[in-house]
């Protein structure tokens, strides 16, 4: 559906996007993850035909955005980082305008607009000037605009930025639902968001792709150890040594002493061995009660940070 091949964008000597290649299959929700300034928006801007690439290709349904921009633009609904709304128009007027711009069939336009307004929950504010809407509503109007003309591909640049937690959950649900009919590329620098919504993740850093995989696979591959946070009542020095004796535990690191003799430790073990039970019995035998134990999963965040730092070490 979407093919990005060796995409490069240079500004003078600076490479904002450096030889990026990936594909998105039909019906897939792809997360585009990276810190601010990693090249996410630039890649999206190139794909949607807003800016041209210095080198490489971006294709949608077999049409190259450079040579057949109109064919590509017809198939894409783009929601840029800042919703491209006219402040002096009402929501209805604005969507009507976008419908005309996208050459939506006159007969279908009205029903399509009211369906979309219902879907993104802006029906209540349809008569209001966009200028007077809250950030969350403006964001939704931006999304509604992208949905108009029922494009095959949706490109959403940080769709939940500036929303409150409740709205974020709503928008994520909506995106998941939209994923049934559309192919979606979604960018974000919020990691749980990507793992919640996307089927596949492209991690981009400094304009280069650092990893492409499903969120689960990434967690598996990059999390070489599982970690526990254990708080035990007892003398700091001997407990750590006792823990290290347990089979499977690779590393014990006292984290912080909460009160006298109440210390939390970070315990790292091999992923395939569950050390929680042996740990419990060992401590029980010694008479040091465990008052807290929780697993610290390798989050996308950790993986991401790991990828970014690894790259720095190489370079």
């Amino acid at each position: 559906m979407i093919e990005i091949q060796n995409l490069t964008k240079k500004y003078g000597q600076i490479k904002a996007v450096d030889n990026v290649s990936f594909t998105v299959n039909k019906g897939e929700i792809l997360g585009f993850l990276g810190p601010n300034g990693a090249g996410k928006s630039t890649t999206m801007n190139i794909l949607t035909g807003y800016i041209p690439a210095t080198d490489g290709k971006a294709m949608v349904s077999g049409f190259d955005v450079m040579s057949q921009p109109l064919e590509v633009k017809k198939r894409i609904g783009y929601m840029p980082e800042h919703p491209p709304v006219y402040m002096d128009m009402t929501v209805t007027d604005y969507l009507n305008f976008v419908g005309d711009l996208k050459k939506v069939d006159k007969k279908q336009k009205k029903s399509q607009i009211s369906d979309i307004m219902e879907l993104v929950k802006i029906t209540d504010v349809r008569g209001r000037l966009i200028n007077n809407l809250s950030k969350g509503y403006k964001q939704r109007v931006g999304l509604a605009q992208a949905l108009l003309g029922s494009p095959e591909v949706l490109v959403l640049d940080e769709p939940t930025v500036g929303l409150d937690p409740k709205q974020i959950i709503e928008i994520r649900k909506l995106i998941k639902a939209l994923g049934k009919e559309h192919t979606i590329i979604l960018s974000s620098h919020i990691l749980p968001e990507v793992s919640a919504v996307c089927e596949r993740v492209v991690i981009i850093n400094n304009g280069k792709i650092a990893a492409v995989d499903t969120p689960e696979e990434l967690a598996k591959n990059f999390g070489s150890a599982s970690r526990l946070l254990v708080t035990v009542v007892g003398p700091k020095s001997s407990i750590a040594d006792k823990m290290r004796e347990i089979y499977g535990i690779k590393l014990v690191e006292p984290n912080m002493e909460k009160e006298k003799d109440v210390v939390s430790y970070i315990v790292e073990s091999d992923t395939d061995i569950d050390v929680r039970k042996p740990l419990f019995f060992a401590m029980a035998k010694l008479g040091y009660p465990i008052i807290e134990m929780k697993s610290m999963d390798m989050t996308l965040e950790d993986i991401f940070l790991q990828l970014v730092t690894e790259e720095k070490e190489v370079g």
């Binding site: 801007n45 949607t48 035909g49 807003y50 109109l70 633009k73 017809k74 894409i76 783009y78 840029p80 800042h82 491209p84 709304v85 006219y86 402040m87 976008v98 711009l101 996208k102 050459k103 605009q145």
Partner: peptide, 14 residues
């Protein structure tokens, strides 16, 4: 200034 040029340029209009 308002970023609405993105809308115009990425819509299927020459």
């Amino acid at each position: 200034k308002n970023g609405t040029d993105v809308l115009l340029i990425t819509s299927p209009v020459k």
